[in-house]
Amino acid sequence: MNITADPTTPGGLGSFGFDDEGVPAERMPVVEAGLLTGFLASRETAARINAGNGGSMRADGWNRMPLVRMTNLHLEPGEGTLEDLLADVDDGVYMETNRSWSIDDKRLNFQFGTQIAWEIKKGKLGRMLRDATYTGITPQFWGSLDAVAGRDSWRLYGMTNCGKGQPGQSAHVSHGAAPARFRNVQVGVRS
């Protein structure tokens, strides 16, 4: 697992030349080979933790206070294709395109719902599934990552309404990712 924050990504919704404190945009690793190695920061918080110059302070308008928040946050590609990932799944679910999001205030317990999903049986996609959901605890979920597809499958996704702060602010962010495989994920939670 390798995660990179990169406000210089061409075409990224969270791309900029400099942040709202005037710090130039800079690509930086956040997770390297599964180890947490970096933090998004402001000038103030970077000084407190002795880590770089900041560069992640953004406000959603001229009359809002800048917050430390995501820019473009990417899961770096691995190797192979989606078919390679599927081939090693005997019984699973292929989730596409989140449509609902919920995570607790410590960003630990999450539940996401998808627009569409597919059954995986013996390494092949099967029937379509509606309203599939998946849930977990963040470090356990990411700890169960066992494969990421390669650069050819990597795409830049994004959203325009990432919320943060109180009073709330809304930001444009992008996430680059390739299909990824996780083991032993709880799926299908309904009331």
Binding site: S100, I103, D105, Q111, G113, D131, T133
Partner: peptide
């Protein structure tokens, strides 16, 4: 409650956390 998400609008299914 915190960070609600609508799982299934037609059935009024909502998820979230208490806090």
């Amino acid at each position: 409650v915190h960070y609600l998400g609508v799982v299934h609008p037609r059935e009024g299914v909502v998820t979230g956390m208490t806090r």
